[in-house]
């Protein structure tokens, strides 16, 4: 039954002679639904930060910041990371354990590389003398990249647990679930980063 039908149903009428149906709002597995609800919350959080960012820009003391070049490299690395997880997911559907391992390894390593690259970017900024926190553009840069980094670290916990599952040789069904969750999470991370990076570049 579609969601619209479900919501327009007349509950006071008892339907006779019909076996009560199973009730799930979405055909996805529950952890996937949970993850998407969580990502919706994260989206609201990042959106609010961006709204405040844009709003704060309108004040006269705003001095734009020139972003370090290394961010371009980091973006590429994050794309690789996201692709790695997707590769693992595709192989999980195929039931190819080696493919899962390769994908997870590539995704995880690229994530660490991304984090290292972000720290490098911070370092470059400090070397350029950009640590005057009273400049809101600088404050926002550290805040937004830091928050995105934290979000990625949270994902790496999931990556670590998934890798442990690969090692413990749990069933393929369980592995497919974990890998799928990781892949969706990393795609989200990538999209958030692209939006953040785009906004930082434009302003």
């Amino acid at each position: 039954m579609g969601i619209f039908q479900q919501l327009t149903e007349k509950p006071w009428l008892t339907v006779e002679g019909k076996e009560p149906a199973e009730q799930r709002a979405f055909s996805l597995e529950s952890p996937h639904v949970g993850l998407r609800v969580f990502l919706a919350v994260a989206t609201v959080l990042f959106t609010l930060f961006l709204v405040v960012y844009v709003e704060r820009m309108t004040f006269p003391d705003w001095r734009p910041l020139s972003e370090p070049w290394v961010l371009w490299l980091n973006t590429l690395v994050l794309v690789i990371s996201s692709a790695g997880f997707h590769w693992a997911w595709v192989n999980a559907d195929r039931g190819d354990l080696d493919g899962i391992k390769t994908g997870l390894l590539a995704g995880g390593m690229a994530s660490f590389a991304f984090l290292a690259g972000q720290l490098w970017a911070w370092r470059l900024l400090v070397d350029l003398g950009y640590y005057d926190m009273a400049n809101p553009a600088i404050g926002f840069f550290y805040l937004l990249t830091g928050l995105h980094g934290l979000h990625l670290l949270g994902g790496l916990v999931a990556w670590f647990r998934t890798s442990a599952k690969v090692k413990a040789e749990v069933g393929l069904a369980q592995l497919r679930l974990s890998v799928g969750l990781c892949a969706v999470y990393w795609h989200f991370l990538l999209v958030v980063w692209l939006v953040l990076f785009g906004l930082l570049l434009l302003t």
Binding site: P11, P20, A21, E22, Q23, R24, A25, F26, S30, V33
Partner: peptide, 16 residues
């Protein structure tokens, strides 16, 4: 949220 969406028993439609 997910329990209400996904874990309702057989016959427990949203409108019930």
């Amino acid at each position: 949220v997910v329990t209400v969406l996904q874990a309702r028993t057989r016959g427990m439609t949203l409108m019930r």
